[in-house]
Nucleic acid binder design. Sequence first.
DNA 1: TGATGCAAAGCTGTATACAGATATGAACGC
DNA 2: GCGTTCATATCTGTATACAGCTTTGCATCA
Lengths: 229, 229
Amino acid sequence: MARTESNVDRLYDALRRMATDFSFKPDARINESALATQLNASRTPIREALNRLVAEGFLTFQSGRGFFCRSLSPELVMDLYEARVAVEVESVRLAARRGDERDIAILMQELEDIAPDYTSEADTEALLAMDERFHTQLCALAGNAELARMLANLNDRIRYLRLIDLRRLQAIGPHGQTMVSAHQRILDAIARRDADGAMSEMRAHIERRREGATQAVRDAYAQLYVPEH
Amino acid sequence: MARTESNVDRLYDALRRMATDFSFKPDARINESALATQLNASRTPIREALNRLVAEGFLTFQSGRGFFCRSLSPELVMDLYEARVAVEVESVRLAARRGDERDIAILMQELEDIAPDYTSEADTEALLAMDERFHTQLCALAGNAELARMLANLNDRIRYLRLIDLRRLQAIGPHGQTMVSAHQRILDAIARRDADGAMSEMRAHIERRREGATQAVRDAYAQLYVPEH
DNA sequence: TGATGCAAAGCTGTATACAGATATGAACGC
DNA sequence: GCGTTCATATCTGTATACAGCTTTGCATCA
């Protein structure tokens, strides 16, 4: 039988999920005792998980006052997307230079297979997951664990923004095809070992979404401050 | 009177210092009780600090077995330096595009002022601090807190390698001037708003040190496994 | 001699208690 | 009505205790 996930991991996962989807409202103080009761644990392991989340940028901490949900300013969104550019542009450069031929082929096949799902655009969350998965796999082609780790962190922190952004896109009109072809252009450049091409495609792709995301953060504020969601 | 630093901050700083300069030996298990006695605290705040260090990549954690000092493989060094390239190359790009004219001038002046100290190369640790400071300030020109944060983390994690690398450089011959002029070329490119020039100078500058650092890690192993240092 | 199993020691995971700091709200004065 | 002060309640910071898991070292056996 598989090893049961340890309790602190369970707490960490739960808390990170709460932080990423803003079950905590921005800037709100986090009550440790309440969390402990809610998650059926004592304060000690809860605080350990919270400390990790602070280090990862999901929460902030003020000595003597406790833990707080991070705020979400347009400036932070800008910073996070620029950081994504830094990580992902270099990743595709490395991928174009040394990505495994077979892995690239697999990724291209996979992209083609799920293209219909992109364009059908039934479920925004599924679309988000596909988008994120593609970027993660692309980064994996570079074979650099640190870049992968940085991207994973950034993805977690902007997930909610991406969701709101995608919802906006879908409301405007069908955009699944646009996303698929952007992804395909990046991957094609990598396949033909065109590092510069891949880099500029990736940069353009992310920057295109940056403005959408800064707009999304304003929408997000509206959606965040409802009683419960 | 200034607010006294909280105890957990003190512990965190102490532990991070121990992790960065490898007072813990790579892959060694960390005994919480011993640390608690040594640092005059109980295990609870120690564990909170350790959890943060795990999230920051200084330590690893295995459920049920505890905390371990990270290992230092040539692959990890490679990854960290490539991540530095990602962060710093994009930073100088942004700095060239939007860095404040006045800040750039200040940095140029400062670089000129301390050039003699670089070349005298008396103290390797001082040289290291100057190098790190320059890169940090350069990154600050980009005005992106996330990139700055990522770089700060990377700097902490490679500090020891940089030290060993610099020692090797100094042993071979005088290299302070080489470093100064590399820094000056990057800054000059930024000053004339030449983003591409700044990017390729920065890339070359970091990659030049990458091989030195992977060699340094082998030397580091030799220096790490002496009884105490 | 080398492998295996077992018992003891040590360490981690977490609940709990309590001291001290911080936030809250009521009472009071302006 | 509005700000101030103080008492109260709440929450954080950390020590400590203890259960359960891991490791270690010894003894046994092939």
